[in-house]
């Protein structure tokens, strides 16, 4: 007999039984990702298995951050968390499965990007991010690798392991967030209070990377990151960014001159550069917001964003094709 007191348990078991893990597709420090199937619908899913057993403080913060934020976010450009269940000592997150990500596409040099392609990817990224920000959630790890692409061309923001809610004053947050190349200057200066700007800066770097087909600001240490940034965009002055010297780790830097973006992004039209520039403003208070960016003329002006179905796709070989290729290679063909 169905019992109310066992609802939670019964639900967990039912969810667990509805999914099958098919094969491992990735492994990270704290999770293993599987390609799986939802048995009731035959839908292909990704199952992220988080090994709780090894964390001494129980459910770890990344898992909590990811589950906490994704449960509240439903948007076409944010990855959908379909279910969560425990099995043995593991927490399993059932997520939408997407074939590839923006990093793969950027690196696949056989693909030529049209301006409309970049525009549509930026559009989808900003829509997803605006939804996060509207819900007072910071992603804090925006990078091409975390922008997944579906077979239908949809882009979805993924990996919310560093995400958190924000917006209250005097709430200290860690500055140790965002992958270095995409890290905003205020974070590099150790800011403990920050906002939307950190995600926007990262998107600016991604935008630039889409135009260049290479990482825009690739520093190999935090110090070098600042140097790379200042060389590219000029060292900020007190007028550019008032009271930046109040930040905990602020250091005086060599004064590099500001070079106009068009010298590096030679093929980009003015509206593109204008939007890019407004994302890469040093003063986080003056940096554009996701909402404002969506209203920028760049998105109205021609060329129109490439229709979803025409966006370039990174074709990953199916296991069968890959096997045949390997066989062919082995035979010296």
């Amino acid at each position: 007999m169905a019992s109310i007191r066992n609802h939670a348990e019964q639900h967990n078991t039912a969810v667990y039984r509805d999914y099958k893990k098919d094969r491992k597709v990735g492994e990270g420090a704290y999770a293993v990702v599987y390609l799986g199937t939802q048995l009731s619908t035959n839908k292909v899913v990704a199952i992220k298995k988080i090994k709780i057993g090894q964390f001494k403080d129980g459910l770890d913060m990344s898992a909590i951050r990811e589950v906490k934020t994704l449960q509240e976010l439903r948007h076409p450009n944010v990855i959908e968390l379909m279910e969560v269940y425990f099995h043995k000592t593991n927490l399993n997150l059932v997520l939408e499965y997407l074939e590839s990500d923006l990093e793969m596409i950027i690196k696949d040099k056989s693909i030529v990007f049209m301006p409309g392609d970049v525009k549509h990817w930026m559009l989808m990224t900003l829509r997803g991010l605006d939804h996060c920000h509207r819900n007072w959630i910071l992603h804090r790890d925006m990078k091409p690798n975390n922008l997944l692409l579906g077979r239908d061309g949809q882009l979805k923001i993924a990996d919310f392991g560093l995400a958190r809610d924000f917006g209250d004053r005097n709430r200290q947050m860690t500055a140790q967030v965002v992958t270095r190349w995409y890290r905003a200057p205020e974070l590099l200066f150790g800011a403990r209070e920050y906002g939307f700007g950190v995600d926007i800066w990262a998107i600016g770097c991604i935008f630039a990377e889409l135009l260049l087909r290479n990482p825009y600001l690739p520093g190999s240490t935090d110090m070098e990151q600042l140097d790379t940034m200042f060389r590219a965009l000029g060292t900020p002055t007190e007028a550019d960014w008032p009271s930046m010297d109040k930040l905990p780790n602020h250091i005086q830097f060599k004064q590099y001159p500001k070079t106009p973006l068009r010298l590096l992004f030679t093929a980009a039209p003015p509206d593109t550069l204008e939007l890019l520039e407004s994302m890469l403003i040093y003063d986080p208070n003056r940096r554009i917001s996701a909402r404002e960016a969506l209203l920028h003329p760049y998105f109205y002006n021609k060329p129109r964003p490439t229709p979803l179905e025409n966006l370039p796709k990174h074709v990953r070989d199916t296991p069968e094709v890959a096997k045949q290729k390997r066989k062919a290679e082995a035979m010296g063909a």
Binding site: M1, S3, N6, E9, N12, Y16, R17, K20, K21, K24, V32, Y34, K49, K51, G53, Q54, F86, H87, K88, T89, N90
Partner: peptide, 28 residues
Amino acid sequence: NGDDDDDDDDDEDRPSKRTRLGEDGFAE
């Protein structure tokens, strides 16, 4: 003996005393 039809649970799934938790205490 638990749901051992799981295909993936390889090496790292050593039995632990916390394993029983989920199944524990549900008599019916």
